[in-house]
Computed example of a mutant assay.
Amino acid sequence: MPSVDITLDLSLDQCRSYYAGAVESIQTYTLDGRRVRFPARALHRLVSHDGVHGRFRLYFDGGGRFTAIVPL
């Protein structure tokens, strides 16, 4: 299963936009500089009292579809 590593630094207010459905996907860059997009709903279980911060590994299936996000 292909994977990439990213860093996220999202405030609680930014995360609220994702919860409200105002934003459907997150676009960011991998640690090696590639642009990647994944569903905003994937952040729901990662949001803490101050947002989402840290490094994460995104997993994709053979067709390039997002399957999981895991904190590193």
Rank of each mutant, 00 (worst) to 15 (best):
F56Y: 15
Y19C: 03
S11F: 04
Q14H: 05
A68W: 09
G62F: 06
Q14N: 07
D5C: 05
H44F: 15
G63I: 05
D13S: 12
R37D: 09
T30K: 03
V4Q: 08
T28C: 10
R37V: 13
T7W: 00
S3H: 11
L72W: 09
Y29A: 10
G33A: 09
S3F: 11
G54N: 10
G62V: 12
R45H: 14
A22K: 13
V36S: 01
L43S: 11
A68I: 04
D5K: 11
S17M: 10
A40D: 04
P39F: 00
E24H: 12
G51Q: 08
R45K: 13
G64L: 05
D50S: 14
P71S: 13
V70W: 04
R35M: 10
R16K: 12
A22M: 12
G51S: 07
I69L: 13
V47F: 05
L12D: 11
G62L: 14
H53P: 02
R41A: 15
R55Q: 14
R55F: 02
V52C: 10
D50P: 05
V47E: 08
S25V: 05
P39V: 03
H44Y: 15
V4L: 05
G33R: 12
R37L: 02
Y19M: 12
F38N: 00
S11I: 01
R55W: 01
Y59N: 06
L12C: 04
F66Y: 14
Q27Y: 01
S17P: 00
A22G: 14
L46F: 11
I69D: 03
L72C: 10
A22P: 01
L8F: 02
D50E: 14
F56P: 03
L8I: 00
S11M: 02
T7K: 15
S48M: 11
S3Q: 12
V23D: 00
S11A: 05
A20R: 15
C15K: 00
E24W: 03
F38A: 01
E24Q: 14
T28Y: 01
R57V: 15
Y59K: 07
V52I: 08
E24F: 08
V36R: 00
V70P: 04
G33L: 11
A20L: 13
G21C: 09
F60P: 06
R16L: 12
A20P: 02
D32L: 10
V36H: 03
E24R: 15
A22I: 08
G54Y: 04
P2Q: 11
L72R: 15
G63H: 12
M1I: 12
Q14I: 04
R34I: 06
H44V: 13
T28R: 00
G21F: 06
V70K: 14
T28K: 02
D5M: 08
D61V: 06
V4S: 11
G51E: 04
G51D: 10
Y18R: 03
